[in-house]
């Protein structure tokens, strides 16, 4: 009974939100916004900027929505976030088509499939809509692409931290979500290359173990690594699930003083292990800041400012953008944040 009422309440709340959203969209279409941006009190143009995410409703993109809304509050531009109810490339394309019809000024997109959105983004640009892409370094039809950081640099950073905890010597293993996860492999490749150069005392005994973003697999593989390599002293994780899985195995065996677990994760799942010492450091980037940075870039582009290396987007991690040698419209922040036992408290909500 309790269950049932929960369901219907949540359901009706969802449908109210849906209708409100739809009504809001219809209002937007009634006003011919794209052609003549109205003027704010301070004399600046006020633009309409849509942010299209991969999936609506999951924690990661709800956090991104907060960042986008913060940008709207700070600047007075009309910003909103849309996304398909489930991760689906075709639905995302439909949403962007709707936005073209509404003649928004700019579209910020986190594509589910970079290739699938190319044609619709080209159409948007042909209509004079500014397009900003995120998590899509290979996007062709975008005015600007912003990535939270350069993958190789991030990989080297993680290796530096692991090396510090391992005392720059000993055996370590690396994990990836799968051998086809592009960013994970770039992080690990750069990390291992950096280790070979900078930390000759360390040995990579098990390379790119796959955990398929599954905490249970990360746990089982770590147990197996502990059995196989009695001298193992370090683990480098890539997927959000690796650090909690590996740390659990380490904690269960009582080896938190010997084996150092470092990697990409979120405080919500890895916090308890940082506290217990079974994981030493996790790193991640804040989707709220990425949402803010995308919208800021959209405004800069709309105002005709040229974005170049060193540009400041007014939010931590994106204060001095790095460029890319072969892609003039691709920019990187340095937006990773490290969390250890010591600064855990200030990240408790992430």
């Amino acid at each position: 009974m309790l269950n049932r009422s929960r369901f219907t309440m949540k359901e009706s709340a969802m449908s109210v939100i849906r209708w409100l959203g739809l009504a809001g969209l219809m209002c937007l279409t009634l006003v011919p916004l794209g052609c003549s941006p109205d003027r704010a009190a301070d004399g600046n143009n006020r633009y309409v900027i849509a942010t299209v995410v991969k999936v609506d409703g999951i924690a990661w993109f709800e956090t991104m929505r907060e960042g986008v809304e913060a940008f709207g509050k700070d600047t007075g531009h009309r910003v909103f976030v849309l996304g398909p109810a489930k991760a689906d490339a075709a639905e995302q394309v439909q949403i962007i088509e709707g936005l073209i019809a509404q003649q928004v000024d700019a579209i910020c997109v986190v594509p589910f499939s970079v290739e699938a959105v190319e044609p619709v983004l080209r159409r948007a640009r042909e209509r004079g809509i500014v397009v900003i892409s995120h998590e899509a370094s290979s996007q062709q039809n975008a005015d600007l692409i912003i990535e939270p950081f350069e993958n190789a640099e991030y990989g080297r950073h993680l290796m530096d931290e692991l090396a510090r905890y391992m005392g720059e010597k000993g055996e370590y293993a690396t994990f990836v979500g799968s051998l086809t996860s592009k960013s994970h492999n770039e992080w690990v490749d750069a990390a291992v290359a950096h280790q070979k150069e900078a930390y000759p005392g360390m040995v990579n005994v098990a390379a790119k173990i796959e955990d398929y973003d599954d905490q249970n697999l990360a746990y089982e593989k770590t147990r197996e690594l502990i059995t196989t390599y009695p001298n193992l002293t370090g683990i480098l994780g890539s997927a959000m699930s690796t650090v909690p899985g590996a740390a659990l195995a380490v904690e269960e065996r009582g080896l938190q003083d010997r084996i150092q677990v470092v990697g990409t994760s979120l405080v919500s799942v890895s916090g308890p292990y940082l506290k217990s010492g079974a994981a030493k450091l996790i790193s991640f980037w804040d989707p709220a800041d990425a949402g803010y940075a995308m919208n800021k870039l959209a405004v800069m582009q709309l105002e005709g400012k040229t974005v170049q290396e060193g540009a400041d987007l007014g939010i931590d991690g994106y204060r001095e953008l790095a460029g890319s040698p072969d892609r003039p419209n691709l920019f990187y922040g340095s937006a990773w944040m490290d969390v250890t036992k010591d600064n855990l408290a200030q990240f408790e909500t992430k």
Partner: peptide, 15 residues
């Protein structure tokens, strides 16, 4: 099988 591939020293590509 699933829990002995690392133990046998098989590279990930072969799992």
């Amino acid at each position: 099988i699933g829990n002995s591939l690392i133990l046998m020293g098989l590279p990930t590509e072969w799992h």
